[in-house]
Amino acid sequence: MLGLEYFSIADLWSPLFMCCMLLVVAGYLLVVGPFSEKFAEAEPVSWMKKFMFIAGVFILYLAQGGPISLLGHMMFSFHMLSMALSYLVAPPLIMLGIPPWLWRKMLKINPLRKLKFLAMPIVAALVFNGLFSFYHIPVIHDYVMLHFNVHRLYYLVLFVSAMLMWWTLLNPLPESSKGSSLGKMGYIFLNMILLTPACGLIIFASSPMYSIYSDPNTWAKSMGYCISGDTSLLLANFGGPTFFSLMSPLVDQQVGGILMKFIQEIIFASILAYVFNRWYKSENRENDELTNGESY
């Protein structure tokens, strides 16, 4: 399927990253399970929270260490799918899976307290969407994809900024959730707007923007960071990334931009509908109470 049969199990499933993710899940289950007795404020964690955390880690693994990650080095559309799963789907699931008492303990760590200003709604939205848009400037994207340490660091910073962006909408600490429903709706619209220019430039570009997906030599070099063996054999055997794609580089690029924007719109539109529904019910309840009070 899509040429994946030409790669080894290790190339497809990244065993080292898999082990890291399994350790994260094991550590989480120990902390919220048998080790929770060591925390004074600890409370039982529901199976739903555990499921959300594990699902979030699993999705992050698929996006950054599974076949989607490998395909993301060959097709821009899969790269954008990986980005959407990594920063729009996995973070909220992981955040919701962490119980409030554990969040309180983690947020007491001194370095995190000093970065509290980054969680301010406007700052968080600008930082995440700015980093995402900056990354997809062609020269920046190609540089990051060709330098392993920069690639990992940038993706880590993007993930942290995504968590901060989601904090305003999903704040798991009841005592610090002060945002109004109207404010949250405005925040959702802001995020939807901020990502639009980058996706628009990608979708409406008249030619392929990224040499990773159009230049065979650049592609082969970038593949050296996600597969084992001599990457020159990739050129000899396949000629370039177009061997694995059913679309031309330009169409693949356009599909990637549409896919990213579509996933963002679906997720944020769903949250917007939920927030609006709660706000609408709250307003009606207050009006009913006022009406009943006046009738007396």
Rank of each mutant, 00 (worst) to 15 (best):
L96T: 00
L96P: 03
G97K: 00
I98M: 05
I98Y: 01
P99H: 05
P100M: 14
W101C: 06
W101D: 08
W103M: 08
R104S: 06
R104V: 09
L107T: 03
L107W: 06
L107A: 02
I109R: 15
N110R: 15
P111T: 09
P111G: 07
R113L: 10
K116R: 13
F117K: 00
F117T: 00
L118R: 10
L118Y: 05
L118H: 00
M120S: 15
M120R: 15
P121S: 07
P121D: 15
I122C: 13
I122G: 13
I122T: 14
V123M: 11
V123W: 12
V123S: 13
V123T: 09
V123C: 05
A124D: 06
A124I: 04
A124G: 03
L126C: 12
L126Q: 15
L126W: 04
V127H: 11
F128W: 02
F128S: 08
G130D: 14
G130E: 07
G130F: 06
L131H: 10
L131E: 12
L131Y: 01
L131P: 09
F132Y: 07
S133T: 09
S133G: 12
S133R: 12
F134H: 08
Y135E: 12
Y135V: 04
I137Q: 10
P138C: 07
V139A: 09
I140P: 15
D142Q: 08
D142C: 13
Y143H: 09
V144P: 01
V144F: 13
M145K: 11
L146Q: 09
F148R: 15
N149F: 09
N149T: 06
H151C: 00
H151I: 07
H151E: 00
R152A: 14
L153F: 05
L153K: 05
Y154P: 04
Y155H: 12
L156F: 13
L156R: 11
V157L: 07
V160L: 09
V160E: 00
S161M: 05
A162Y: 10
A162G: 07
M163Y: 09
M163A: 04
W166F: 04
W166Q: 03
W166R: 05
W166G: 03
W167C: 00
T168C: 09
L169F: 05
L169S: 13
L170G: 01
P172D: 06
P172A: 14
P172E: 11
L173M: 12
P174G: 00
P174C: 05
P174D: 00
S176C: 13
S176G: 10
S180Y: 02
S180T: 01
S180G: 10
S180Q: 02
S180W: 05
S180A: 02
S180V: 02
S181E: 01
L182I: 01
L182M: 08
G183K: 02
